[in-house]
Design a protein around this nucleic acid. Structure first.
Lengths: 399, 399
DNA sequence: ATGTCGGCCTGTCGCCGACAA
DNA sequence: TTGTCGGCGACAGGCCGACAT
């Protein structure tokens, strides 16, 4: 994983030269977000990329008919492109501190595209969340101008340097760096009755500079080099609708697809951006993960599965569900695509907001107790998969 | 000119529903900016649109080689497209208040493209600057937190409602609306020794909300309906580089061209944005203006001309220059284009910052005293124009 | 253990005319 | 005519422990 982009990166869109702190980036991105490694092969889904775009711009959310009428077809652009991943850089939006990643992809040759299962592939590295960190959702008192920031006791003792409790009151100056490498100074004091940890002087300028409101989260990291970092996670999904005022969203949408099509046709590099927290589409998948899920796993309607989700406390938990159907999400524009090809139902009724479609590599099928035959009377007109290469076997165990 | 977009506009990118004040928009845009009328025919230059894009993103400013390697060629996209102008809406950036326009264009058929000179065409309406308005560049005192806004005496007497001078001190509340239809209240008072007009209470919140700094300009308009409006013009060109974080600038650039090419191929509508103050590229030209300049005007190397520019006081003045060459700006990508095909030199040495290339419709050739033969020993290898349709004559006088 | 509040001090905001350019 | 400044009053910002949950 490259953290900086010294020269090779032909497009430093933001002029960002600094080396972003990887731990901090991942802490802000959350426990479920992982990035594929530089030099490996990945599967890029223009369909998913398109989905992120539509989500970010909130255009034609429900009526995809709208899209169809403006966006030309790219018949030579397959629903997935096997690519060499040449570069990955972590970024943070200058205005909002929202984390995102930039990747440089190069599609493999037409021939190699068809021999996916013969390629050496990796499952991708697990995302390492930092150990010495805490994340707190800001209260009304934390963000009001009336006072400072109340630090949870355990958090302060774990990630802040120890105070000299012989002083009265114990007090020190904390210096923390954000994703843009800006320094923020806070007065850390242990006072009150009962005693508690507080950040006072310096806190309000941070809140106003980052435009934090109650409900947003702030996180502190104490790394091995005894450096302190801080990041933010906004509660309200940005949804800034981003009034481009430069290019129509149609043109951008066309550009997204045309750039991929052009790169696929010429086997040349192209650049994409992945916004993990802004949109729920993870559209660049390690090749091994894809191959394992698509070629080594047998799923069918009625099968039970588990899937990971992030909790509000930024940890992970598993939700259970049942496969209710398998088929194309968009049969017209993206036929025979594995992108969100699995229709599912969720066990918990409160999980009604969860997406009704998932991709194979997102789920963990429970093969030990398959509920088979299916209690669902669903029957696909066209068996799945169809027209896809059959896995010839012989591939080693991938874990 | 349509000011609102009630339904017909298929793409309200910003969700903006309000009807922007046309006078205010033009006042903010400046005296040189005019928009073609809805329903007329215009000439769209993808090359100029591309230039605006590159300017706004500051990518590959000097080395166009960079662009060439990433952006595919669109051989079927001519350097200019004659279009029907279906819609024009005025907008202002939510963050910066920067004015821009959205236009919906529909390319004419291939056949009509070649018969430009046979089409009925209009020169476009002149831009009407409001009469009752004033514009002041903010001083350090105006923007400091120490005091309010010092209103120039003549300006206050002309555009503000008259004060009741029997009161001591004379004082009133002003309510002005900005481009987003937000209300701003100011206390207008006439006091001090010597007496002067001041805006006190309410001014500082306006300055901080709009993030105004010394050097920026604010303007007030008093219209016929006795309504007060205010707008801003920032001194520092935004140059925000706009860290997209959604789409790579390459993809956007491709999208710009691909959208135009797709629209040209299918004679379908497409949408563009024009940022008059952010970039110096006016790339949608009334057809009549284009026809007159390209087919009715004879220019040659050595010819003298005048061209309008905006002064710092937001009025206009003419600068003189001499044509030093005629030829393609980008012979490889846009051969036989009229976009900035005229190389010029400017009389005033202080005008060294002025662009070295202009388009025919931007200049006023001085045919009364042509400096011919040319004092410049320039000689074009390929005479200009070449391969362009010869004007058959018979077209009526266009002004 | 920690969110919110009243008390209270203080620094900055912001209104005023003086003065000068 | 108007830009900047010193003066100074008002008020919001912000540090404190009390108190409740």
């Amino acid at each position: 994983m490259r953290l900086s982009s010294p020269g090779l990166n032909h497009q430093s869109q933001e002029g960002e030269k600094k080396c972003l702190n990887s731990e901090l980036w991942h802490a802000c991105a959350g426990p479920l977000v992982s990035l594929p490694s530089v030099g490996t092969r990945v599967v890029y889904f223009p369909q998913g990329h398109s989905e992120q775009f539509i989500f970010l711009f909130q255009v034609a959310a429900s009526t995809n008919k709208e899209v169809d009428s403006h966006i030309p077809n790219y018949p030579n652009l397959p629903p997935q492109l096997i690519c060499q991943l040449h570069n990955v850089t972590m970024h943070a939006d200058v205005e909002t501190d929202e984390v995102y990643a930039q990747m440089t992809l190069q599609p493999l040759s037409q021939q190699e595209q068809k021999e996916v299962y013969l390629l050496p592939s990796e499952l991708g590295t697990a995302n390492k969340q930092p150990t010495n960190y805490f994340c707190k959702t800001l209260t009304a008192s934390d963000t009001s101008t009336h006072g400072g920031f109340s630090v949870p006791r355990r958090a302060a003792e774990k990630v802040f340097p120890p105070l000299d409790y012989s002083q009265q009151p114990p007090c020190q100056e904390l210096i923390a760096r954000d994703l843009h490498d800006n320094e923020w100074k806070f007065r850390h004091i242990f006072r009150g009755q009962p005693k508690r940890h507080l950040l006072t002087t310096g806190w309000s300028v941070f809140v106003s500079a980052k435009r934090l409101v109650a409900g947003d989260s702030v996180l502190f990291i104490w790394n091995e080099k005894n450096q302190l970092f801080l990041g933010i996670r906004r509660a309200s999904r940005p949804q800034t609708v981003m009034p481009s005022s430069v290019l129509s969203s149609d043109s951008m949408h066309i550009g997204l697809l045309a750039a991929a099509a052009h790169a696929a046709a010429t086997n040349s590099r192209f650049t994409i951006f992945y916004n993990p927290r802004a949109s729920p589409s993870e559209f660049v998948i390690p090749l091994g993960k894809y191959v394992k899920a698509v070629y080594h796993t047998r799923v069918s309607v009625g099968m039970r599965f588990r899937m990971l989700f992030e909790t509000e406390e930024s940890s992970v938990r598993r939700y259970m569900g049942t496969i209710t159907g398998i088929g194309d999400l968009d049969p017209v524009r993206w036929p025979n695509s594995h992108w969100r090809s699995v229709k599912v139902g969720w066990d918990e009724s409160t999980a009604g907001e969860k997406q009704p479609r998932v991709s194979l590599w997102e789920i963990e099928p429970l093969t030990t107790f398959p509920m088979y035959p299916s209690p669902f009377p669903l029957r696909l007109k066209r068996p799945w998969p169809t027209g896809l290469p059959t896995f010839p076997g012989g591939m080693g165990d991938q874990g």
